[in-house]
Design a protein around this nucleic acid. Structure first.
Lengths: 258, 258
DNA sequence: GGTTGACCCTGCCCCTGGGGCAGGGTTCTA
DNA sequence: TAGAACCCTGCCCCAGGGGCAGGGTCAACC
């Protein structure tokens, strides 16, 4: 030991790691001390004082980049910077609190992905005993609808609520889901398509489209929502959909084409 | 527009940046969609759904690395992970709160660097009208002492408090600070050294050293604290210090040599 | 049919605050 | 005199993207 502390001692006394001390040197926050004959850094009191000050500021949440400014600043400028850092810390805390809130919604199913109204509809769907595939498809459709037509999402939910409040239509929807397992040329397909289309034509509110559907890419977005399930892999399902759409168009309903 | 959304549209609908979407692809969080003829990514509903889910988790503070696990996990594992993330968030919040506390201490002078007892002594020094250089030197000495002899710091403060409670000794200290401006061979130097040494020998508690001074590098640390000011640049000051130490050693006080 | 502006592509470096490791030299202790 | 414990520089790494370069594509307008 010649004169002064080695980097390890200085770091230990200041309560930081050796790596951090070297980092502070690189950032110009603490002066490089003189080296001894073998090239080791030897810390004297000036560097130790700088180190303690820098560590204190850094631990208080001051970004390293702003520490030189703060050390040089007069009391008023110093106080102003402290205020600003404090505000940033408060913001960060608020954001973390918000994350915790989101996280707690996440803990209970879909409440982070969908608003309460949508979750209520999903609960009702579960009560109505739709099968898991149908349920998932509806749920995903909601998530997509919320992302793709945010401004029309309330109207979408309203239509959805109306549809599941109509027992006759609920039966028809269950029939549609059951149809996935039929043969494509099953005679029941045409009958079901006719029944669904007639019901929709008699209840026009169920087929009203969101207001922003007139946007140029609306058809693409509509297609994404309506044909997103795994069900349309079934040719029967495809045929059923095509038949229903054909009848609806014949009945004057304007359905976007993919 | 052929089929599906471009990356910009998908990002906008999911409420993230294009860059983030590509980042998620790279991390394997969202499947790469098919490309169109010109190599553009075309997003369909499966990728959009993944994107919305990933965004929701990421915004809730789930680290990207854990998102695949969470998406695959069953409800109980999912809930466990949520709990753990929540705990981490709570810890982060607590740490930020601690930073704010430190920051507020920073706002009022040295209260972040020194405990209240030390600040009280510094306030008293100010009242006793020590000049700015002396004051800064004492303050820096305290900071160094706290870092270098943490376990002996309370005793150090007690000695300090006793010293400044002794009006005779305070006068002598002021004389020492004034001596920096004298000529080195000023006859007052010897007289002052004698007075200081006599006073210290008559009040042995003022020269008691910290308990851990017997550590191997204690002399180095002691030297750092005692000779850290700008004052020892003055040859008069050096001579005064040497004279005092010589008299003290002669009086039986054990002073480490640098 | 040419231009313009808005998109898209890949790939690279940048930010914070250091952590970790490689490969080599030095000092202290047993 | 050996080994442990330091020290040195230099490089790559972490999260969550941001920014830019350099080049291709698409749609609309004149």
């Amino acid at each position: 030991m010649r004169i002064g502390l080695t980097i390890g001692q200085a770091a230990a006394f200041a309560g930081v790691t050796v790596k951090a001390v070297r980092h502070y040197h690189q950032r110009g926050l603490v002066d490089e001390p003189d080296r001894d004959a073998s090239g080791y850094r030897r810390y004297g009191s000036p560097q130790l004082l700088q180190l303690v000050r820098v560590r204190t500021l850094a631990r208080a949440g001051v970004p390293l980049a702003e520490i030189p400014t703060m050390l040089d600043a007069g009391p008023s400028r110093f106080a102003a910077t402290v205020d600003e850092i404090d505000r940033r810390l408060a913001d960060d805390i608020a954001e973390l609190e918000a994350r915790r809130t989101t996280l707690r919604r996440l803990g209970s199913g879909d409440r982070a992905l969908l608003p309460d109204r949508a979750c209520a509809i999903l609960d009702r769907l579960r009560e109505l005993d739709f099968d898991a595939v149908a349920f998932d498809t509806y749920r995903e459709g909601m998530i997509l609808a919320k992302a793709l037509f945010p401004s029309g999402f309330d109207a979408y939910l309203a239509r959805f609520a109306e549809a599941i409040g109509d027992p006759e239509y609920v039966d028809l929807m269950k029939g549609v889901w059951a149809a996935g397992a039929w043969e494509p040329d099953d005679p029941r397909v045409e009958a079901l398509a006719a029944a669904v289309a007639d019901h929709l034509l008699n209840h026009p509110r169920l087929t009203r489209f969101p207001d922003d559907l007139n946007a140029s890419d609306a058809a693409t977005r509509y297609g994404l929502i309506n044909h997103h399930g795994g069900q349309e892999q079934s040719p029967t399902f495809d045929r059923l959909t095509a038949l229903i759409e054909k009848r609806l168009r014949a009945g004057g309903v304007d359905i976007p084409r993919d």
